[in-house]
């Protein structure tokens, strides 16, 4: 496979050569730049608002114009997520596992592309490779859990009446997420995997300063047999979207990566309106083990307990009626 070496620098260099010949009479090829859009309902629409922000790396090079997602993009995403969630949850656990593993496969194959994307954003080659590899591993990790976490957290409960009493996990539904601001790829993926592993649909706001990695990752999701709408990725600004994420009544949980105290307080207050579950996760060191844990899956599930009547005469030899 040809090694892909295109970085923003080389693209910029090509751009300055546009229209010139390279000396032997053949014109220089015009570089084709990618338009980064949103990922909603299994499609890649532009933002409804028509706005954008300039994404620059540490050395102030323009990397791309990213969609500045609006509250209506968020609204549309929630509609898409709600529509997709029921069917996703009713897939077999085994199938969800297969699809998570497929994500790992697709990402692995695009390893070089993602290393290039992250390099553009200012990662060293070593850092970029570490991040991509960790993301692939994380997909495999949660693929493994998809058909196992139920056994860990479900239970038959001892009760002092004539009931067979058991608790099982169900997905919460639509989970809104503010992805970590650092680690545009690993952070995003670490937030998405446990939620979809548990049968939820996700609307996630990507890291603002590393958003290209998120939209490239959407292409991986798109080609991994993940049904459209199960994951929806927006790019934009936290400050603009926070209140809408926290107040939307069709959102069942809000996972917030970060440490801004004002954000946390506002989210807790607004989430109370429809008893949305606010979940705050420290975004420091995403390589640590605790980001790879079945407790992450548990965080966005509800426990359903069922009381099933059995024979009322405990001495009568049993048998359900």
């Amino acid at each position: 496979m040809a090694k892909r070496k295109t970085t923003i620098k080389t693209l910029a260099k090509k751009a300055t050569q546009n229209g010139r010949s390279n000396g032997n009479g053949t014109p220089v090829r015009l570089a084709v730049q990618k338009t980064y859009k949103l990922y909603i309902g299994g499609a890649f629409p532009r933002t409804e608002s028509g706005r954008y922000y300039k994404l620059k790396n540490n050395s102030n090079t323009l990397i791309a114009n990213m969609c500045l997602g609006s509250r209506k993009d968020f609204r549309n995403s929630v509609v898409a997520a709600r529509k997709a969630q029921g069917k996703w949850a009713s897939r077999t656990a085994y199938n969800r596992s297969q699809i998570l593993y497929r994500i790992a496969e697709m990402l692995e194959e695009r390893r070089d592309q993602f290393i290039a994307t992250l390099s553009d954003l200012g990662y060293t080659a070593k850092q970029a490779a570490r991040e991509v590899d960790a993301t692939v591993d994380r997909a495999v990790h949660y693929a493994g859990w998809a058909d196992k976490y139920q056994q860990i957290y479900s239970a038959v409960n001892p009760v002092a009446s004539a009931h067979f009493n058991f608790s099982v996990l169900e997905p919460m539904g639509v989970v809104a997420i503010f992805a970590p601001e650092n680690h545009g790829l690993l952070g995003l993926a670490s937030a998405i995997f446990p939620a979809i592993c548990g049968g939820n649909a996700v609307v996630i706001l990507a890291s603002e300063k590393e958003a290209t990695a998120a939209i490239n990752f959407a292409e991986v999701l798109h080609t991994s047999d993940l049904p459209g709408g199960v994951v929806n990725i927006l790019t934009g600004k936290r400050a603009e979207l926070r209140d809408h994420f926290a107040t939307h009544k069709d959102v069942n949980a809000f996972v917030y990566y970060g440490s801004n105290k004002a954000d946390k307080k506002a989210i807790q207050t607004q989430a109370a309106d429809n008893l949305k579950r606010p979940i705050f996760i420290d975004e420091s060191d995403l390589f640590k083990n605790y980001h790879e844990s079945p407790y992450r899956i548990l965080a966005t599930t509800e426990t359903k307990t069922t009381w099933h009547p059995i024979a009322s005469d405990m001495t009568g030899g049993g048998g359900a009626y």
Partner: peptide
């Protein structure tokens, strides 16, 4: 002023 849900 906030988006609703069919749940309600």
């Amino acid at each position: 002023g906030v988006y609703g849900s069919m749940d309600y």
